[in-house]
Design a protein around this nucleic acid. Structure first.
Lengths: 125, 125
DNA sequence: ATATGTACCATTTGAAGTAAGGGTACAAGT
DNA sequence: ACTTGTACCCTTACTTCAAATGGTACATAT
């Protein structure tokens, strides 16, 4: 499989990486159980920082598209194909939009919503 | 009635002004129908900018604590005492906290929630 | 003329957060 | 020794926003 990262693209590098791995899973280029390059290896190949690749891997594991097995490396998740369709971001956006809509219809100003949101994010630890 | 604005206080000036007017309503120092100083007058007395006072007045009118009658001036709302108890900010914070709680329990990262929130605020015009 | 709220134009200051990178270190296993 | 993912430390550049201020202008009324 080949991965191409475009630095000029406005989408974050870790997002590009996630998208391409998900696409490879959906197209069948990557199948359940396949091993992925190590974080350091991939970072070196793509000329990215370790942290950038690690972030993509961390999120892909949370989405159950890949599985990390410590020193053994990283592999494609058994349900990767099914899970690579799910879009957590879209769901998050939908939930937030619904709530914001409610607040605005009640007359809340944008700044009030933003302040309250920032406070809520701080306190929810 | 006397209003005291503390510049060293971390709470925004317009918020301080709103709070003090609401308190004056609750304590009975200001009653329904009482007239308030004009925006320019109050801004001058408290050494604030017109916009700062105007913002407080605008929000107090939205909360139905005061009523503006154009060139005639600004007055205490008929239901001011009842409405000065309601706290829109607290309700907004509660709604957002509930939604954020849901998102976090689903595994969403803080940054994802923040990005989605910013997008939702942009698109909801 | 003068005063009312309001609506624009603008700027400055400060805070907060993301994305990305750099470095160092660790336990677990080969 | 070497590699794995991971967890810290910190820095840089960029973006967005709130809050406050300043100025100009307007219709509406006295």
């Amino acid at each position: 499989m080949e991965i191409v990262i475009n630095i000029d693209d406005e989408t974050p590098l870790f997002s590009q990486l996630m998208e391409q791995i998900k696409k490879a899973v959906q197209s069948g280029n990557l199948s359940a159980g396949d091993s992925l390059p190590s974080i350091r290896q991939l970072a070196n190949d793509l000329d990215l920082n370790n942290k950038t690749v690690a972030k993509a891997y961390r999120l892909l594991e949370r989405d159950e598209v890949i599985v990390t097995r410590g020193y053994r490396g990283t592999f494609i998740h058994e349900q990767a194909k099914k899970n690579s369709d799910r879009d957590l971001n879209a769901w998050v956006a939908l939930e937030l939009t619904k709530t914001i809509d409610t607040l605005k219809h009640a007359g809340a100003m944008d700044s009030e919503i933003r302040i309250a949101f920032a406070e809520a994010m701080k306190k929810e630890r």
